[in-house]
């Protein structure tokens, strides 16, 4: 800007040019600690706010009636449920979902779904679905997330309830040391749902067993 002013927290983002005493500098890299810090204060750093970015992206996805999961799965030729960085980014680009994002927002997205050098695209698709469900259930108390008191007696109601919960189930299960490579015992699964506020009715447990049981 023409008039010098005091720096604001949200001046600091990837790609921005900031000027010190008339010398322009472009931010081309940020260290992990700075990023961690910013991500903890999403209100002050909207470009580091995964929910805001996913929310904007979700509107685009919904407007275009896009089902992004199959696109990522096609790119995941080894069926690992994650992609390396290059393929993850090129798939996002291919869907034209990064066009409206700046470098910082793309980096935020990537960091959110990165674990070691793997990018867990399924968890990104989950988050889009969660945000959509949460948005569409706003103002309708019957589908709002509930506390322990009401137990869903049908699998369908249970799944809808699980979907609007803020907890990311797939990520939680994947990271739990009691699960193995996408598999978990029904008892542990029940325990994990309960730990995060979802008590399963016997009928639901039964239906989960019937639908999702695999040979050990």
């Amino acid at each position: 800007s023409q008039q010098p002013r005091i720096f604001r927290p949200n001046d600091i983002y990837l790609g921005n040019v900031i000027s010190f005493n008339g010398n322009d500098f472009q931010i081309i890299e940020m260290d992990n600690m700075s990023l961690d810090f910013c991500e903890h204060f999403p209100d002050e750093f909207p470009m580091m706010d995964t929910f805001k970015i996913i929310g904007d992206m979700m509107h685009q996805i919904v407007d275009r009636r896009l089902d992004i999961r199959p696109h990522f799965r096609r790119a995941d030729t080894k069926r690992r449920r994650w992609l390396d960085q290059a393929v993850f980014v090129s798939t996002l680009d291919g869907l034209a979902l990064t066009a409206d994002l700046n470098d910082q927002e793309v980096l935020t997205l990537m960091r959110r779904f990165k674990d070691a050098d793997s990018y867990y695209y399924e968890e990104m698709c989950d988050l889009v679905s969660h945000v959509y469900a949460k948005n569409s259930s706003m103002g309708t108390p019957s589908t709002k997330s509930r506390k322990f008191t009401i137990i869903d007696s049908s699998l369908e109601a249970f799944k809808q309830n699980a979907r609007v919960r803020t907890i990311q189930w797939r990520r939680t299960f994947r990271k739990d040391p009691q699960t193995h490579d996408g598999f978990v015992t029904l008892a542990i699964l029940e325990k994990l749902f309960k730990k995060h506020g979802l008590q399963l009715a016997d009928a639901v447990v039964d239906e989960i067993r019937r639908t999702y049981e695999v040979d050990p």
């Binding site: 679905s129 799944k159 189930w169 029904l186 008892a187 999702y212 049981e213």
Partner: peptide
């Protein structure tokens, strides 16, 4: 004990219904 594929369950939780 009963073993569950949690990815398939999560696929059904996080559907694309728009």
């Amino acid at each position: 004990s009963v073993v569950i594929n949690f990815n398939t369950l999560c696929d059904d939780i996080y559907i694309c219904d728009w």
